[in-house]
């Protein structure tokens, strides 16, 4: 019986040890680590990318210590809400839908979305145009109609729970067959293998893949922004955390004035994506 008691006590002790209490002054920032060049993981298992660098810069300005927490994309918002971390910096665009659940800081960078196909595909290469879905003119509409025709019945891959998936589901591009993936890496693999006809993601995500895999993809159609694509990428913060929201907003202001965001964007994206 004594032995039994001992085991039971050590079990309970172990349980509380593992649960622990994580409260401290340290700000924890969640990122995905699978969306290069925004955020990724290198061969030593370290989180890298534009947002990882920027997060540390912002924390330096705020005078806080920070740690980066890895979190799968599909559990990002639930994890923020349950308190696993305090802020999201994961290439997450500011959209009305997400604003219902969490707050966003001002945007720190902007991304445009683009379709990509594997080289040799019959779908035509890039039109130089960019379309802002908030202000569609007749020429834009023509481009959209042409895309609708080219993509009719085609299989298009996107990462699950993204603005890109929402856009395809909105019907603005007509009836397409949408396949969803857990990560952008998986989308790229299946696109390169030829399992899907096209993919939709941030243009830089495809450019990054091209630079690593040897230019196997072509970006096609116009680039997209506005509308379902939201208004830039910002820091996601819990609804009741207004102090942290203010801190992030002012630190982004400072970082922008000092040219830090621009410098990091050019380092990771190859152009100035700051906003």
């Amino acid at each position: 019986m004594r032995m039994l008691n001992k085991t039971l006590i050590s079990f309970i002790a172990l349980f509380f040890l593992l649960i622990g209490n994580s409260y401290s002054d340290n700000i924890k920032i969640g990122t995905e680590g699978a969306y290069p060049p925004w955020n990724a993981k290198d061969a030593s298992g370290k989180l890298i990318g534009f947002e990882v660098d920027l997060a540390f810069e912002l924390c330096k300005i705020m005078g806080h210590s920070c740690s980066i927490v890895e979190q799968d994309w599909d559990g990002m918002i639930p994890a923020l809400q349950s308190g696993k971390f305090d802020a999201i910096m994961a290439g997450m665009s500011i959209t009305d839908e997400r604003k219902k659940k969490i707050n966003f800081s001002q945007g720190y960078a902007d991304e445009v979305a683009s379709f990509a196909v594997v080289k040799g595909s019959k779908i035509k290469p890039r039109t130089v145009k960019s379309i802002n879905l908030n202000e569609i003119d007749s020429a834009d509409q023509k481009t959209l109609d042409a895309l609708k025709k080219a993509f009719e019945g085609k299989i298009i891959g996107v990462q699950t729970g993204t603005i890109h998936q929402n856009f395809l589901k909105s019907g603005q591009i007509g009836k397409v067959n949408v396949w969803t993936y857990k990560t952008q890496d998986e989308v790229n693999l299946d696109l390169a293998a030829g399992r899907i006809d096209a993919a939709l993601a941030a243009a830089v995500a495809f450019e990054d893949y091209n630079s690593k895999a040897g230019n196997v993809l072509n970006l096609v159609g116009p680039t997209f922004s506005g509308g379902t694509f939201g208004s830039g990428v910002g820091v996601g913060i819990r609804k009741n955390d207004s102090q942290l929201l203010n801190d992030f907003n002012s630190s982004i202001d400072t970082a922008r004035k000092k040219g830090i965001i621009k410098k990091l964007a050019i380092k990771h994206f190859g152009f100035d994506a700051s906003m």
């Binding site: 599909d74 918002i77 729970g161 396949w179 969803t180 299946d190």
Partner: peptide, 20 residues
């Protein structure tokens, strides 16, 4: 559900991740 198919578990996961 891990290879793009929306079976029962895939559908369940999708509903959970959009409606919590």
């Amino acid at each position: 559900s891990t290879v793009t198919l929306i079976d029962l578990t895939g559908a369940a996961k999708y509903i959970i991740s959009t409606h919590f």
